[in-house]
Design a protein around this nucleic acid. Structure first.
Lengths: 212, 212
DNA sequence: GTTGAAATTAGTACGAA
DNA sequence: TTCGTACTAATTTCAAC
């Protein structure tokens, strides 16, 4: 069903290889657009919104699911209401060749909502949601610091989440480019390059990614 | 729609103030747990899984939705399949008193999936999904650099997303603590504090949050 | 890929515990 | 509040086109 669904994205994907799977056409994209905004819409209503028949909608819906283009449906929960008012980012420097262990420990930490391996100064960024600031401290000092794979951490707090979109799609960009391009910006070629900076991968990063 | 209110909670909330709204009991939490893993489950099936009647499930479901504890239902889409194979984090230093403008510009950038205001060296972190690395460069140099509010940026690439949980809940922590606590870690008080570092808010950060 | 019917299931209303 | 049931509306499935 979805052997090809394990590339660069979620959980244990094979980084670097992209399976072709489904060829997604405009209607597929439109379906994804609708579903990402309303994950509980009925397939019948979905069919109407994208302008296809019910049967077609069911076929495509199942295909997207089976192919892995739709990974899952989920409810976005207000973490503050749920009792987790504090969000923090912890940037982690991982000791070489211990990446596998780091991952295993991560799985044991339910307060971790997100973890990504990054280029730059640090090796990974994890996002945690906890009840109070004390819990962040506990988390970092008691849990993370005890992992041998963790060489160093740097913690910042999230003061506000300005925006969170339910997965970006290429169609968003197309739509926005048509609507929001302003001539002054389009023609303006003289960009103050001096004020930005790209940060490359740290030493041995590629090696790190292979040992899991 | 994708704007999140200032205290991190639901859409129309009073910024800074957290309404008490619903008192969430164990059953509410269990409902959230199920819904976060399967956002398309029928209310009937939900009722059975949490062990309440259908009528009760409908009542609670609606209450959670109305209260804002459930913000929305969404489909998680494989961005690689959707044609956005590159994910990057851009750390932005924002000029004081120009936060409002920065937010407005953000809304015009569909490739931005997430933006949070943080403590630490930078003021904000944005996560973007684009088709290729060139698009990141374009995004940073053409779009971000042209915003007067942006003083400086620092970009890192995400090589792999190790884990992404559909919103953390307090119940996860409880469950994990029961299952995964190992005596060696619980009693181990001597933590190598030297290897971690907390980063406080940059100058004038609090002022920044007020001017929007 | 579409339409239209049957079977199933979802959502609502209301009385009783 | 919660449950159970009956009722109504909608969805999904399956057929033929």
């Amino acid at each position: 069903m979805s052997e090809i669904s394990r590339n660069g994205s979620g959980g244990g994907g094979q980084p670097g290889r992209i399976g072709i799977g489904l060829e997604l056409d405009d209607i597929h994209m439109k379906i994804l657009e609708v579903l990402r905004e309303n994950g509980r819409i009925s397939v019948a209503a979905l069919a109407e919104r994208v302008g296809i028949s019910r049967a077609n909608a069911y076929t495509r819906f199942e295909a997207l699911r089976a192919d892995g283009a739709i990974k899952r449906f989920t409810a976005e929960i207000d973490h503050v209401r749920a009792g987790l008012g504090i969000t923090a980012l912890i940037f982690v420097t991982v000791r070489q060749q211990m990446w596998k262990q780091f991952r295993a420990e991560l799985a044991r930490m339910p307060e971790v909502e997100y973890c990504a391996i990054t280029t730059g100064q640090h090796d990974a960024m994890i996002q945690v949601r906890v009840a109070d600031v004390a819990a962040v401290h506990t988390m970092v000092t008691d849990r993370l610091a005890n992992i041998p794979a963790v060489k160093a951490t740097e913690t910042v707090f999230i003061l506000d989440e300005v925006l969170k979109r339910p997965y970006v799609l290429p169609s968003d960009r197309d739509r926005a480019h048509r609507a929001a391009r302003r001539p002054t910006q389009e023609t303006q070629g003289d960009v103050p390059l001096g004020k930005m900076r790209f940060v490359g991968a740290a030493e041995g990063r590629n090696a790190l990614r292979k040992d899991d």
